[in-house]
């Protein structure tokens, strides 16, 4: 745990809100508090980085080369539009 005088928020609270924070679901003062905490706390920063990298790997699964058959099919569709 690493709490500085500037921190109004503790590690436990950051961890509890971390996934929503990374999803962009926390705004305003709470987000600013977590931002400040992550600047000072190596443990929470490492955890946040790990979760960011893992979700980047998950998100990358949503990108595949479109198969040639699909490309031809889409081209045929758009010629009809």
């Amino acid at each position: 745990m690493s709490v500085t005088d500037q921190d109004k928020i503790r590690c436990e609270e950051v961890i509890a809100h971390l996934l929503q924070y990374l999803d962009g679901e926390i705004d305003g003062e709470k987000r600013a508090e977590i931002d400040r905490h992550l600047e000072h706390c190596r443990g929470c920063y490492s955890r946040a980085e790990f979760e960011r990298l893992l979700r980047r790997k998950v998100a990358a699964l949503g990108d595949e080369p479109a198969p040639p058959a699909l490309q031809r099919r889409l081209k045929a569709l758009m010629e009809e539009f």
Binding site: L61, G62, D63, E64, P65, A66, P67, A69, L70, Q71, R73, L74
Partner: peptide
């Protein structure tokens, strides 16, 4: 196209179904 297909593939688990979905 690639991202639509990739996302469809993750949802359907099947390349032919993913192409239909796209």
């Amino acid at each position: 196209a690639g991202r639509l297909y990739g996302t469809a593939l993750r949802l359907t688990h099947n390349p032919a179904d993913a192409e239909d979905l796209v």
